[in-house]
Design a protein around this nucleic acid. Structure first.
Lengths: 157, 157
DNA sequence: ACATAATATATGTATATACATATATTTGTA
DNA sequence: TACAAATATATGTATATACATATATTATGT
């Protein structure tokens, strides 16, 4: 017989830190820690398909544009981690035939990046799995999720 | 004359995504994006001192134990990113003379890790700067920060 | 038109990271 | 006691990342 007890575990206990110098410091740590926790679960699903989280996100950006192409600059603009190297992520997607680069006719500096049908199919396959996993790892009511989203939006000012 | 207008910017607008498939998906992206945003600011401060965010966090874990030593295992347990390589982060801290390893007398497998006085001084120097920076980048009242912390704690279940 | 600045992307390089595996030591057990 | 399992840490290796710089193209000012 298994008994599951879900209790709210404070971040202090979770990472065994006595106390934080301020609620603000605690928030940063809480954000990063919680983000990592959820990402980790998603990552496990992506690993089966040989995708990194970054590649997955870029692929979703490309799908958002489809059937129009995106440019590398557009991808950088929409990526979660602005510092990372969009060009080389597109390289990886191209190698896997999930995306394709073509030269932009109007501006030869730009590379048009298009998701392939293989890319679309892969995302399609992943969508439901990822959604279910995310939902199962987030122990909140839909109302709380909305509050959280609003607070995070406000946080960034 | 400068006029600052702070408006709440939804994550949809921020990363220019039309809509999310669910509030849960939005939350994951919102968390990672917001965490990155705050980390980025902190990182800028740390860069001046030639520290990575990870090294900084480990250093703070060591200070939390001081004057007792920590072990590498203890560090892994308390790190935000469980996947990363605590042993090699300690390597880096040792090279910079910010921490020191000695062999544990009771259990020769364990490495006792102690923050040095140089390490303590560096943290001391950074504390205030980091706190001010974090506070300035988090556009929330203290009450909202607390709500956010509580929600994140609950999220993890 | 021409030089210069700005823009979009790619690439070189050092470092960091994830993951698998190796090594050393301790614990449990027959 | 001897031997397998567990534990703590370190290390090899492939890949990812950050940052600086290079290259190609387009926009701008005179």
């Amino acid at each position: 017989m298994y008994i599951h007890i879900f209790v709210t575990m404070r971040i202090e206990d979770e990472i065994k830190q006595e106390k934080f110098s301020s609620e603000y410091t605690k928030l940063l740590i809480n954000l990063v820690y919680t983000g990592n926790r959820i990402s980790f679960k998603t990552n496990e699903i992506l690993k089966e398909k040989n995708l990194t989280l970054q590649q997955y996100n870029v692929l979703r950006i490309l799908r958002g544009q489809h059937p129009d192409p995106a440019t590398v600059n557009m991808i950088i603009d929409r990526m979660l981690d602005k510092m990372s190297n969009a060009s080389r992520i597109v390289d990886k997607l191209e190698i896997k035939k999930l995306a394709q680069r073509t030269m932009n006719k109007e501006d030869k500096r730009c590379a048009d990046v298009l998701i392939t049908s293989k890319g679309l199919a892969l995302l399609n396959e992943l969508d439901e799995k990822v959604k279910v996993s995310e939902k199962s790892v987030i122990h909140l009511t839909i109302k709380e999720v909305k509050t959280l989203n609003d607070l995070l939006d406000k946080l960034r000012g």
